[in-house]
Amino acid sequence: MTTALFYLFSIFLLGSALFVVLNRHPVYSVVMLVFSFANLAGIYFLLEAYFIGILQVLVYAGAIMVLFLFVVMLLNVSPERPRARWVPLDRWWFGAVALVFVISLGALLVRGVGQLPSARSEVPDGFGGITQIAEALFSRYLLPFETAALLLTVALVGTVFLAKRKI
């Protein structure tokens, strides 16, 4: 039952992500992105990463996407029209690079991850719960945690500065 659910979520995830990329209208894209992130959160729950799943809903599907939506509305972006003129060779160049990338990524998956033995089926109680993450975060990862706080502060200041009317 959960396995079936995983594949369902995966299909929704990939489908909506593809929609985000292919759609011409930014507002639809944002909405589909929210949907894809929600599916991702579902996959997180299935993988027993409950805290991360909740964060995914709160931070990504919630905060970040609202920010995107605001900007789209603020700038009143119109739907993207097809390119009037491609820079010569660009289309083929980008396509070739993307293709090579996908192939090499696939090779890595087959050669690397494909060789791994099957997973241990059980994890201890409370795995992925808030207690365990908090323990790791405030002991071994205390310094990176504090640094992250600093990063957020810097980002805050930077954003305020950049968004001012005159720079």
């Binding site: 820079v87 690079v97 090579v100 990338f101 690397g112």
Partner: peptide
């Protein structure tokens, strides 16, 4: 240096491809 960010991104990606191939 075309000034077009996607050119830069494609070259960056090419670098990633090399790393991936090296690892694979």
């Amino acid at each position: 240096q075309s000034g077009l960010i996607q050119h830069y991104a494609s070259l960056l990606l090419l670098g990633v491809v090399f790393i991936l191939l090296a690892v694979a």
